[in-house]
Write a protein that binds this DNA or RNA. Structure first.
Lengths: 106, 106
DNA sequence: TCATCGTTTAGACTGTTGTCAAACCATCGT
DNA sequence: ACGATGGTTTGACAACAGTCTAAACGATGA
């Protein structure tokens, strides 16, 4: 015989079987980190939180917080806006609802 | 003065602000991988899929598939059962519903 | 101008994760 | 009992992600 073909052989991909939307993936990714999840929860709970508030609520540096907020923002779950010297983060409930709706299809 | 305290200083953690449930975290984690998400979708679509079916649907080795299935199983999203030489994977819709319900609270 | 609040970048460290190959276990036919 | 087939476990590895420090930068208000 030619080759025992090994114990396990990867097969070629067939047609994509209803691949999930990109947004769903990015949001799921954003949610996968516990800290980020908590941060999102915190923002959602007050529907609007200042960065300084968040910094008081979690033991992370400003750099890390900024990083997480950017992640959450880039997937559309939050928005940021300046209020004077401060930055407010607001929860985008529509995006959240859309995400849930998409998950519900599964 | 003593020290300018650096540019950014971590603060002490305050009381946990409504920390998310463990299950929600593990499921969110499981969903964060695109491949795993697809696999779950595939299983959910037929509500029951054989491993061999899944192996035909995705270009991954049996080992990797097994790994992913274990992840999905350990967070309660699927169950596995032997049927003769084969292993069937079934979607646990209740767990899924519970997850969605939990997310909806946010 | 200076202080404050936040962002960005860069570098480094650490833990986790997706993946594979190979060895292993389980089941069925013959 | 043996071999073939379907899945699992193990060990290893490369890639990534979260976090920090440190420093520079930007924006705002006093």
């Amino acid at each position: 015989m030619s080759k025992p073909s090994g114990p396990t052989t990867p097969r070629k991909a067939k047609g994509p079987t209803a691949r999930p939307k990109r947004e769903v993936l990015t949001i799921s990714r954003a949610l996968s980190d516990p800290r980020r999840f908590e941060i999102l929860q915190h923002i959602a709970a007050k529907s609007c939180a200042a960065c300084s508030d968040l910094r008081g609520a979690f033991p992370i540096t400003a750099a890390t917080l900024s990083h997480h907020l950017k992640e959450l923002e880039s997937c559309g779950l939050i928005e940021t806006s300046r209020r004077g010297k401060f930055v407010d983060t607001t929860f985008c409930r529509p995006a959240w609802e859309a995400y849930l709706k998409e998950l519900k299809k599964i």
